[in-house]
Design a protein around this nucleic acid. Structure first.
Lengths: 204, 204
DNA sequence: TAGATTGTTAATCGATTAACAATC
DNA sequence: TAGATTGTTAATCGATTAACAATC
């Protein structure tokens, strides 16, 4: 497989989400044009992106929704279930633990951690909250590769360091801070303030 | 002001967040190099981005943290408080309503809406949940421009249409669906699945 | 077949980076 | 002054788009 630009990989999940929606609505076949309209992306870009990975369509017809979903899931490694550690069980962490959208898309929150002694041992949806001190050993023995951080900003970097130390390679960070991680570890940041500020620039 | 590329505007909030952190740590002066290291961005890019808006540094010295914060807040329109409507008060909506990070950054959740009759009239942090049927009138009379959607996917587009109809121009969407909005309305999507899938591609 | 859409190439467009004169 | 860092220009790099032959 040739080197794929990050920006191309980043769009594949958007295609997959739109295709899943089409499938749920009973659509069998789609085209790069239709997909592009739904996503606000040009049809040429969609065809170009897909062409990095193979040929998935049929001239004159378009793409079979189900088989393109399968192909994209395979490319993204979303054709299996990934266990995920969640560190920080405050309001946001609890909302994430309850969120029903992970399971159907192949992610399973398998472990919860928190630093607050009052929370240790409590259960959320049948999952027991473990002390933060157990992160390293637990993540290692469960061989987890994916984690979410939902702690306050001031502890997020230390948590990330511990997670990486334990073998985590993908971190979804909800703490409002830029995390520094070694080469080979991926971080994605979710900070609503950043998104809001990107938009209010355009307001008067 | 010349036309600024979206991608440049999109980085300003990241600069602002890093600078706020520096200020909290008592740092008075920084440089494009230091800022870039913290964010994983080249120093040249930071200087180029800022140069779209004016001259904020001093040769040989760098940037005064406090005054660059002020300049960026002004550019982004983050030097005032924006009232925000929140539609959908499930687990996630409640977590957002409780989140303490909005106020200090100039956002104030001023109205809550939900479609569930059982929730109407209940209070969260002193704010009464209003019925979704009141969105249009309330948003208009409060002259709100910013909203967050935290409803299920199947109602998000209808909610967005109503919000836009009522004058909302910036939507932060937590529902896992691509929203379609008219020209002149900005949408930012927050969907953890998308971010997770972007990362697992790189795992084996 | 006629119509439609893919996959791909080449051209265009835009963003990033390197380098340096200006200057604090 | 000597050292450092800005703001900016020009060069490089990469991404997007337009266009079309291939073909279902």
């Amino acid at each position: 497989m040739p080197r794929i630009p990050d920006i191309v990989v980043g769009r594949l999940p958007l295609y997959l989400r739109a295709l899943n929606r089409m499938q749920a609505q009973g659509v069998d076949i789609t085209s790069s044009h239709e997909l592009g309209q739904q996503l606000g992306i040009s049809s040429a870009q969609i065809r170009k992106d897909l062409s990095h990975f193979g040929e998935f369509g049929k001239q004159g017809t378009g793409y079979n929704v189900v088989s393109l979903i399968g192909a994209l899931q395979h490319i993204l490694h979303a054709d299996r279930t990934w266990d995920v550690a969640l560190v920080g069980v405050g309001d946001l962490g609890r909302a994430l633990a309850h969120y029903g959208g992970f399971g159907p898309r192949g992610f399973h929150i398998s472990h919860l951690f928190d630093a607050d002694p009052a929370k240790i041992g409590k259960k959320i949806d049948g999952l027991t909250i473990q002390p933060a001190s157990e992160i390293e050993q637990t993540v290692k023995s469960a061989n987890l590769k994916v984690a979410m951080i939902a702690t306050p900003a001031n502890t997020a970097q230390a948590v990330a360091d511990t997670l990486v130390q334990a073998g985590i390679r993908s971190i979804l960070n909800y703490a409002p801070i830029s995390l520094t991680v070694p080469e080979g570890v991926r971080v994605q940041h979710i900070d609503p303030i950043i998104h809001l500020q990107r938009m209010i620039y355009y307001l008067d």
